[in-house]
């Protein structure tokens, strides 16, 4: 760190020393990049989490790839990814547009919308477990019999309950992203549209949506890649059950490694998780187009 303090004028003209980036890089290499290679290495070993690590060739991979639970976990992950995206994306887009306007009551609502973000996933899951209880929860409370179901015990319903709770927790965050995006759209665009006689719906599709292109990519990427990290919420809410119906890939990895004590197989699942995450992120960036630094304000 002190290398840059006493530098000569020549060094100053070259800009700051790369050493300033070193502490962050060291932390990141040590606890993120090395473990990334570590998980690949461990997938070729046999380890129960306590004893010795033994090289074991491809046997963990054979176990994982032939186990029907893996395929099921991938399918459950894909379903939750898909449904939570199509639920969250439109709601947060509309709420973002809604809260970005200047009315005072909307600003007040925006303050309240944020509250779920303050709760930990464990807290949200525990709250919903109580709330969804068919005898002492929301159903009997509101006197609505259709709400008094065994939401978490019914393997046909539980997936949608998980999607709903995820949306409840994460829509506020994406609403904020969209709100910020909408506030950067120049008002002159809307004024021009109004002079041309465009209605509210027309303005939304002709101005708001195209102008939000990069915000939509950002939010969607975070949503899709983020859905590979839904662990704590599902772990506390359902534990992956009933049966295997909500056993997402990250949860399956945890249970394989730390409950079934098969760290080799769990590492293979971890590698699969990394590959899927990378592939999805690259795909979404490609969809968004490469030249994202080009001005979006042309013609404004």
């Amino acid at each position: 760190m002190s290398t840059s303090t006493g530098s000569s004028r020549r060094v100053l003209e070259k800009g700051p020393s790369g050493w300033l980036a070193a502490p962050a890089l060291v932390f990141f290499l040590l606890f993120a990049i090395i473990p990334l290679f570590g998980v690949l290495f461990l997938s070729f070993t046999k380890w129960d989490g306590l004893g010795e690590i033994k090289l074991d060739g491809l046997s963990s991979w054979t176990t994982v790839l032939t186990d029907p639970v893996t395929g099921n976990a991938l399918w459950v992950t894909a379903k939750i990814m898909f449904f939570s995206f199509i639920v969250q994306a439109p709601i947060s887009l509309l709420l973002g547009v809604f809260t970005s306007a200047s009315q005072k009551y909307r600003a007040a609502l925006a303050v309240l919308y944020f509250v779920p973000l303050l709760l930990s996933s464990a807290a949200v899951a525990i709250a919903y477990k109580a709330l969804l209880d068919p005898n002492f929860g929301l159903g009997p409370g509101l006197g609505l019999p259709f709400l008094a179901q065994d939401w978490l015990g019914n393997s046909d319903l539980v997936l949608f309950v998980v999607v709903f709770v995820i949306a409840w927790q994460f829509v506020p965050f994406h609403t904020l992203i969209y709100q910020g995006g909408v506030r950067q759209i120049p008002a002159s665009l809307y004024e021009a549209a109004q002079i041309d006689g465009a209605g509210r719906v027309q303005q939304f599709f002709a101005i708001t949506l195209p102008q939000l292109k990069y915000t939509i990519i950002t939010s969607s990427t975070l949503m899709v890649v983020g859905s590979l990290a839904y662990f704590d919420l599902v772990f506390v809410l359902t534990g992956g059950g009933p049966g295997y119906s909500t056993r997402l890939l990250p949860l399956h990895m945890y249970l394989t490694g730390f409950k079934a004590n098969d760290m080799g197989a769990a590492s293979a699942l971890g590698v699969i998780l990394v590959v899927i995450g990378l592939a999805l992120a690259l795909l979404l960036q490609r969809l968004g187009g490469k030249n994202r630094n080009a001005s979006q304000l042309e013609g404004a």
Binding site: G38, V39, L228, P250, M253, Y254, G270, L273, G277
Partner: peptide, 11 residues
Amino acid sequence: AIPLHATIIPI
């Protein structure tokens, strides 16, 4: 771009 949680076992 990486779900860093995948690295919990080496960590």
